[in-house]
Each structure stands twice: as C-alpha cells, then as structure tokens.
Design a protein around this nucleic acid. Structure first.
Lengths: 257, 257
DNA sequence: TCTACCGGCGTTGTATACAACCGCGCGCCG
DNA sequence: CGGCGCGCGGTTGTATACAACGCCGGTAGA
C-alpha cells in the first residue's frame, strides 16, 4: 500500500502536504464525533485510517495537542480531549477578556477610518440578514462568517500581533470561536432575538471605538462574548442543537463522567 | 558519528528524550543570544550543532515555534523571532488581563483557606528577603521564585484549567513571565523600591481575594502586571541589565531595524 | 554580450527500519 | 496450586534513505 505521493510532488491540492491532510483528517474525525472523547489515539492507528505514514501523523498529533483538541496521556500517546460545561464557559470568558483588551487597545490607539468603514459594512450586511423573519441555515451560515469577520477586524484594529496570536490559540478550540454557536442557532429557541441583541452590542462597540472610549469599549466587548455563554446554555438543552454543533460530542455533560 | 543513545534507553537523565534535549538546546541557544534574531534555523544545521538526528530536531523546532520563540518563514523553515518593545508591552498587558481574569474568578468562587495560607506564606517569605538593605543576586533569584509561586497560586486559585493553559502559553514567551525581570533587577536603579511597591500590591490582592471582592481583585492584578512594564523600560536603558536578561538579545530596539 | 536553459546543491517532506520500553499472559518451577 | 519470570505484541523514540522542490551559477547559443 505504497502511498501515491511520496516527497512533495503532485499538487493535487496546492501546497497540501500529508501533514496538513493528517491534521485536517484527525481534526475532522474528532469534531464530527467519529472518535469519542477520552479515546486513545495511537500513531499506527491513525496511519491505518489516514493512509499516510507515521511521520506526518506524528506531526499532526503534536499540532492538535498544542491546539488543545488532544491531550497527551500519562507516559506517552494522546487522548481525545473532552470539555466540561464549565471549561467552555471559561474559554468564552477568556475570549471576552482578550477581545476586550483588544478593543481597549484599539480605542486608545485610534481606529483608522478605513477599518471603521469595514466594521460598518459588516454591520450593514448583518442587518440585511437579520431583517429576514426566519433565517435559514444558509443565512445563518453567512451571518456566522460576517460575525467572524467583525471580530477579526476588531482584533486587527488593536494592532497587536501578540493579542492576535494568543487569541488565535484560544479561538482554535471548538466552542470558543465567536461564530461557534451560529451553526446550531437554527435549533435554538429565540435565536433570532439573541442575534438581534448581539447586533445591538456590535453597534455600541463600533460607536465606542469611534469615540475612542476605551472605558466603554472594553466592558462592552466582554459582555458581548457572554452571548455565546447564553447560546451554549440553550444548546445544551437541545440534543438536536448539540448534534449540529461542531464538536458537540466532546462536551462532557454533568453526570456523564 | 552514530549516536550513543538510539531508541529510548540508557536513563542518563531520567526520561530525557532526544527531542527534549533538542528543545532545551535550541531554546538555550536562542535565549542566550548565541543565534541572533532573524537568523534562519535549518534542520540540518541544528543536527550538526546538537548531535541528534533530524527527527527530534524537527519536533523541537515545531514545539518552539508553537511556543513563539521561532517563527515559521515564508515557504518553509524557521527564523529566530525578535520582539519589539511594543510587543513585549503587549505581552505583559495580556498577562495582566488573564491574571486579572483569574483573580476575578478566584474572588467570585472563593479561595480555599489553605490556598490563602499558602499565599500569605509567600508574602511573608518575600518580606523577609525585602528586609535586606541591598539584596544580592542570590536573594533576588529566591525572590523571583517566590514571586512565580505567588502568581502560580493566584492562577491556580481561579480553578480553571483553561485559564492556566492559555496563561502558560503567554508566559512561555521570554519577558512575559512574572519573574522575567527579576534576574536583571540588580542592575536596575530603584529596583528595591519597585519590588516593595509590587509587594504592597501583593498584599492588596490577597486582601481582595479574602474579601471575595472580584471588582477590586481584577484591576489590582492588572495594574500589578504593569510593574513589569516599568522594569522593562528601565532595563532597556541599561545595556548591562539587558545582557543579564534571558533573551535580551531578542529585543528589537527602535531604530535597530 | 546577453539570455535562457540545465544541472547540482541545499532544504524540507515523507516513508520506513530499528531499538527500547511497557504491560500482559503463559508456562515453568517450587 | 500459586508465584515468578520470560517472552511477545503493541507503542513510541530515533535515525536515515529517498524524493521533490527552489535557487543559483555556469554554460551554450543567438
């Protein structure tokens, strides 16, 4: 079963190395729930599943462990990580703290007019989507993208590579990303009302940035992150929503060990 | 030049793998300044220097890049990262934000009496060291250890593995750790006065935790982190202090490209 | 003389062989 | 019948061979 693609040749997917494929493959397996939380992942096992050799598998496991999806087990090896409700709350709170810091920095340093325009464009586009009475999956997905873009712009506006880097490691966790729950939103009651509240906060945040009011921007952004908390609580009450949430199988409900 | 230790045998240093040695070796080289910031590190080059094969070198480079000491270069390969003054300020601010979050969580959830006792023990031990009129390197080093322990206890008191994890990635950067500047403190003017201010803040923080006053604990801890900012500014004015600072050669002064 | 091609070298990606460790079950001996 | 030891399968750590780029310089042709 020699692999078709030794070396680095054959640009099937441009620049996609075996390591990238292994990372994507394992991450997908974990996030889709085809391997359960707590399950031990061995290098050779992944070799069989992915069809690449141990070397890229090894690199992928290391990267995913650094990302937080996997946890290195006692003597050696990795297990699929699980997340308690409290841990996800904490991750969201951490994101809020860091995005809040970014907002404060941005307000203090002043946001370029071009960036403000971009932010406002985002808001307008989201408004359009929210005007629909009952948005479908398609529209929610587009809203999620716009929301991610809004948060990206916000962080970028801080002008700090450090903040971006740390935030990237936080957001790489499932559930911690700003748009983590949007995909499950269609299965959550009152989802539209929640999104409208979030959008109101978006406007306030942009206004605070424009006014260079760091004292207002920071707590606004922190509080805004807690919308995700509410979404998580609602999603946890709906098995349907959980299955449609990326990595939902990784959530360790209270009482399930 | 076959390596003496193939496989995993021969517990010269217990449990120390070649990969660990490579990580330590490269990190030391970078932090001691024997490779300059911006220099490209090739796998084979490290093989020659470290005397281990490419496999552990590769793993080490990946780990150090995740840690933030190295930066992956455009097509492939790694370069030694450099840090501007502003970036270090940001890193300290980030630590402050996260430690502040930890303090808030700890205050809200309540700190166990045992942990409070540990914190107070730390304070007492630091008081003893600060009572000396002119502490030497030895005493400053012990102070740094105690200070690190204090901050560790604080974070632990939050009871959040997430916060601990993210903070660990921030602190893994040189300069960002709570005790990063203590080693250079002896070469900084007014160092003792600064440490006494820091110690005052330590007391206030513990008092806020004991009173479960999250609203006081968080900003106190944030402000406390900014002591490190002041230390950095002072260290940057002293070439002597810089050379005694781990990773000082990585600091990109304004105007030095 | 300038340009274009070709080949070698340096570098990384990948596969794989081998060594050491760990846990476990089986068999031997008391 | 019970305990101990030994070997074996499973797993990771390490070294290394080979393939595929990319770049640079040299050479040949116009």
């Amino acid at each position: 079963m020699k692999n078709v693609r030794p070396g680095r040749s054959n640009a099937l997917l441009k620049q996609a190395t075996q390591t990238d494929r292994a990372v994507l493959g394992i991450r997908d397996m974990v996030l889709r729930g085809s391997v359960r939380a707590g399950k031990r992942l061995t290098e050779l096992g992944m070799v069989d599943v992915l069809g690449v050799s141990r070397t890229p598998v090894r690199a992928a496991l290391q990267r995913l462990a650094a990302e937080g999806l996997l946890q290195s087990a006692q003597p050696n090896g990795y297990v699929v990580r699980s997340f308690s409700e409290a841990e996800i709350f904490d991750a969201i709170e951490i994101r809020g703290a860091l995005e809040g810091l970014a907002a404060r920095m941005a307000a203090e340093r002043g946001v370029p007019a071009a960036t403000l325009d971009d932010l406002k464009d985002c808001l307008a586009a989201m408004d359009t989507l929210l005007a629909t009475a009952a948005p479908g999956d398609e529209q929610l997905s587009r809203y999620g993208t716009l929301n991610a873009r809004f948060h990206g712009l916000l962080v970028e506006a801080a002008g700090s590579a450090m903040v971006e880097r740390i935030l990237a490691t936080v957001v790489s966790l499932p559930f911690a990303a700003p748009d983590a729950f949007v995909s499950a939103q269609a299965r959550i009651p009152d989802s539209l009302a929640i999104l409208r509240i979030a959008q109101t906060q978006h406007y306030e945040i942009v206004a605070a940035l424009e006014a260079r009011s760091s004292a207002r921007a920071e707590p606004l952004v922190r509080e805004h992150a807690r919308i995700a908390r509410r979404n998580l609580e609602l999603a946890l009450h709906s098995a349907d929503a959980l299955t449609h949430l990326a990595g939902g199988a990784l959530i360790r409900r209270a009482g399930h060990g």
